[in-house]
Design a protein around this nucleic acid. Structure first.
Lengths: 185, 185
DNA sequence: TCCTTCTATGCAACTCGTTGCATAGACAAG
DNA sequence: CTTGTCTATGCAACGAGTTGCATAGAAGGA
């Protein structure tokens, strides 16, 4: 399991409440690990009772009070241990690929609109990543004092960008194939 | 849920037993949807009792008897319905990306070996895909009578190949970044 | 005033997926 | 003749993840 670890990384990058974490899991770290707010609240509670993180009640005006979590010493140890353990290659769940192979037993042309929808979604995500890259990573780095966190966030973001570009190319390939199989469209 | 649908697609491509399906989920369709044999047996039982698939006892010599499953009419209907439903973009679980971001709070150099291990695994998987492509998709297609199933399996495989190539390039980028952050290595 | 939206937290029920274990026939190697 | 491997199926328990629902304060618009 790695949700705990994703939360530890996110809280190390910046302490925050369950609500704030669930927002981050819709942006930033959520591009590489998804979680709903229910999952996050439940896991935060367990992590806190296990002493991995500390809580602090933060009264707010103009909005409900919140609980701000930050990583405790034990949490850093746990994260460090996890970082030194080898992980298995990702187990893939590529629903669209299953659909494409399934289309052979139905109407391939009917998938065209669906694939175009995905293409659109990936175009938007790529634009979003590129905007984030321009915003956060276009300043000059001091070459003698690189900021490790910043560099590592950037290389992960470059991975997201490469993934979206590859996916767009592939979806074009899929669309060409579907059109070839259904020339009347 | 899509394991049912992945199984329907696989059984339409070729009927088979739970054991045979679990083998396919380690190759072929398993590159895009993973499942263990326990999951497969459990779901097969449910699908059969729901009338999506038919069973046939197949006595064998030199090995235990098996139950061969094939898709029933209802299963085809269910698959067709699913194919016409829009699906959400994949929810990502990229554990290595979480680790890379986490490395900022530990020793980035300690990740180098792990990333190299992943690079090795992806190199092997790419070679495996390319071998499969040479084996199954190097014959000439009759241009007037394309085999839809074959074409669609090929485009999905091309997606896997593109993914592995992109991943290898990105892992090289990650390794260069890690080395830059730990020049003593 | 009521309705909606945003922040903020949480429970309960359920399904999905993983892990460990068990059984059993046939064959091959030592 | 025992051990290991391959085919073949399955149970039980647990943990992870999803879905639906609930509460509540404050702000802003109709």
């Amino acid at each position: 399991m790695a949700l705990e670890h994703a939360i530890l990384v996110s809280l190390l990058e910046k302490p925050g409440s369950g609500y704030e974490l669930s927002r981050r899991f819709e942006r930033s770290i959520g591009y590489f690990w998804t979680a709903t707010h229910q999952q996050i609240y439940r896991v935060l509670k367990r992590m806190e009772s296990d002493g991995w993180i500390d809580v602090r009640d933060v009264p707010q005006q103009a909005r409900p009070d919140k609980k701000e979590y930050s990583v405790a010493a034990l949490g850093r140890t746990v994260l460090s241990q996890w970082l030194h353990e080898p992980i298995e290659p990702e187990s893939v769940r590529h629903e669209l690929a299953v659909k494409i192979r399934g289309a052979a037993f139905d109407d391939p042309a009917a998938l065209i609109r669906e694939v175009e929808r995905h293409r659109q979604a990936h175009t938007e995500r790529l634009a979003h990543y590129l905007a984030g890259e321009r915003r956060d990573f276009t300043g000059h780095e001091a070459p003698e004092a690189p900021d490790a966190g910043r560099e590592l966030q950037h290389v992960v973001l470059r991975g997201g960008i490469a993934y979206e570009r590859m996916t767009l190319d592939w979806l074009d390939d899929v669309l060409a194939t579907l059109h070839r199989l259904a020339p009347q469209h």
